[in-house]
Structure formats: structure tokens, C-alpha cells
Computed example of a mutant assay.
Amino acid sequence: MGRHSDSDDQRIPVGISACLMGREVRHDGGHKHSRYCTGVLARYFRFRSLCPEMGAGLSTPRPAMHLVETDDGVRLKATRGDRDFTALMDGFVTEAVERLADLRGFVLMAKSPSCGMERIRVYREDGEVARRDASGLFAAALMDRFPLMPVEEEGRLNDDRLRENFVERVFVYDDWCRLTEREGGLTAKGLIDFHSRHKFQLLAHCQATYRRLGPLLADLKKRPLADIADDYIHAFMPAMAKRISPGAHVNTMLHLMGFLRDELGEQDRAAIHEQIDAYLRGEVPLVVPMTMLRAAQSKVEQPYLATQQYLRPYPDALGLRNRV
């Protein structure tokens, strides 16, 4: 992948709530600095910070706010008093979201009435909780405008599997965007090549989608390429958001072994199978059998496997497969 460099112009552009970058923009004048984002992910992601509330013209400190269900719909109001910030926020959000089309992902601040991705409380006007299933006003607009863009809350990045999944999706989405944005746009070859190099990732995440997308690409002349590509990526990205079970990883690794079977000696095959079984039992992390598969692929120089991003979905230095 072409953006694995640490230089600023090569890092993948990813949005982030400004408080997570350590900026003192919260309603109480504080921040929620994420050292994982600024110290680890920032080596590969070029973060662009945004605070919807500050962007809408509010100061810090400012009144705490929450979402309120009213006869006029959900409103953004001060938790004390009756100040309504909805129009101010909506005006900024509508304009700001349109400037984010080049981003490949977004890390949001949880529990925020503007940036919370999910499980945001909506109150009744009497102060009681009406429901707990909303998104913040900015987060909702972002996900509605860019449904394919990987979005995650910073707190959920503490979960090893969610963190690995988010980073993997950012790199895949970046690959797709660069493919479609290059001079001349998407080509039939470009679409087939994309599917080919991400095929085993898709298999691991969702076998049903894997089986469906192959036939979709079997005849690229029966419909406009843009329509096929649109159907493809709108099935592909949601499939990639599904968590991979250990059994699904094992199934995918055994598929990879099928390409190596004739080239590897019996001892090498047995050693790899032993570590795949150990991974399934939870005795070793995914990185152990995966490293052995990568070494075997390099040893026999199997050209098809050399293109598979499943073997190297993101930089090894992130250490993500050490913990899943």
C-alpha cells in the first residue's frame, strides 16, 4: 500500500474530534487527549481535527448540552435553562461535512451530543430520558453523507478487535478512494484488481458477501461500470465492518494454505497447521500463524498470494494482530 510512509504527505487523511487531539475545546474548557491516536495512529494517519461546537461559534467554557425530544423534533439544548443551539449547530454541520469528502475515516468523541456515534441519550422536555439510541448531530450528518467511511468512537478503540477492524477498514477505504479518484477514474481492470487483492479479507469478514460479489463482477459489460462498482462497494464496506471470528480466520488461512500445499514440504505444512490450531484454541495470537504463512509465501514465491492484502492489511508496526 502506497501510504505506509510516516511523511505528512503520505499519511492517510482521517478526521478526529478536536478534544481527542488534546485541544481544550470541551464545554468545561478541558480536553480528552487520546495518546493512542496522537502517539500511534498519527504515524500513519494525518489527523484533521474538528470541534462542531467551537466551529458553530460557541466559546469554551460554555453551557453543557444534551439532545431533547420536542414537538419540532430533536433539539440541541443547554442542560440548564432553555437555550437552543440547534440552528447554530445545523448550519455549521451542513457546511462542514461537505468539506470532509477526502477523509478516509473519522474518530469521534463518545457520549457527545454533537460527536457521539451511537447510544446518545435523548431527553424529554421534563428531563427524563426518552431513549438511548441516538447519534450526535455532527456524527449523524457525517455517517449519513459518507455511509462508506469508517467511523469509530475513541473509547471503542480500547477494544483490540474493534481497533484492528477500524484500522483495517481505513486502509481498505483509502485503497478504494485512490482507485476511484485517480486520473481517468475507475476502470474495469481497477475494479477487478481491487477485488482480487482484498478477496481473502472479504472472505474472512463475511462469506456470504464474498460469494455474492464474485458473480457480480463476472460480466462487467452487462451494466454500466459505475453502477456495478457502486453496488460492489456498498456491499463490500459493510461486510468489512463485521468482526472476524477465530473460526473465520482459520477458514481463510486454510484457503491460503491450499495455494501453498504443492510447494511446501510436509514438515513446513505441519508446522503451520500446528500454529493455526493453536490460534483456534486461543493459545497464540493471530500474528503467529500469519507470520508463518507470510514466510511460506515468500519462500515459494506464490504470485497470487503476494498480492493478498489479508497477509498485510496495515503496517506491522501497529502490532494489531498481536492482540487478536
Rank of each mutant, 00 (worst) to 15 (best):
M1Q: 08
D6G: 11
D8F: 15
D9V: 06
R11N: 02
P13A: 02
S17Q: 10
C19V: 04
G22M: 03
E24W: 00
D28T: 05
G29I: 01
G30S: 15
G30Q: 08
V40I: 12
R43D: 13
Y44Q: 08
Y44S: 05
Y44C: 03
R46V: 01
F47N: 09
E53Y: 03
G57Y: 15
G57S: 02
L58Q: 12
A64Q: 05
M65Y: 05
M65W: 01
V68H: 01
R75I: 02
M89I: 12
M89F: 00
D90R: 12
V97Y: 01
D102R: 08
A110C: 10
K111E: 12
P113N: 03
S114E: 02
C115T: 01
C115M: 05
M117L: 14
R121F: 07
V122L: 04
Y123N: 10
E125C: 06
G127C: 04
A139S: 12
A139D: 09
A139L: 11
M143N: 05
D144W: 09
F146Y: 15
F146R: 15
E153D: 10
E154P: 00
G155R: 07
R156K: 14
D160E: 14
R163V: 13
E164C: 12
F171H: 12
V172M: 11
V172D: 05
W176K: 06
R178N: 09
R182M: 07
G185H: 05
G190Y: 01
L191V: 04
I192W: 03
R197A: 01
H198M: 09
F200N: 13
F200L: 15
L202E: 08
L213E: 11
P215H: 08
L216V: 07
A218M: 09
A218L: 08
L220T: 02
K221L: 10
K222P: 00
D227Q: 11
I233F: 00
A239Q: 06
R243F: 06
S245D: 06
T252I: 07
L260D: 11
E263M: 07
D268W: 01
R269T: 08
A270W: 02
A271R: 13
I276Q: 06
R281T: 05
V284Y: 04
V284W: 01
P285M: 03
L286T: 03
V287C: 15
S298A: 14
K299S: 11
K299D: 07
Y304S: 05
Q308R: 09
Q308P: 07
Y310M: 06
L311W: 15
R312H: 15
P313F: 01
A317Y: 12
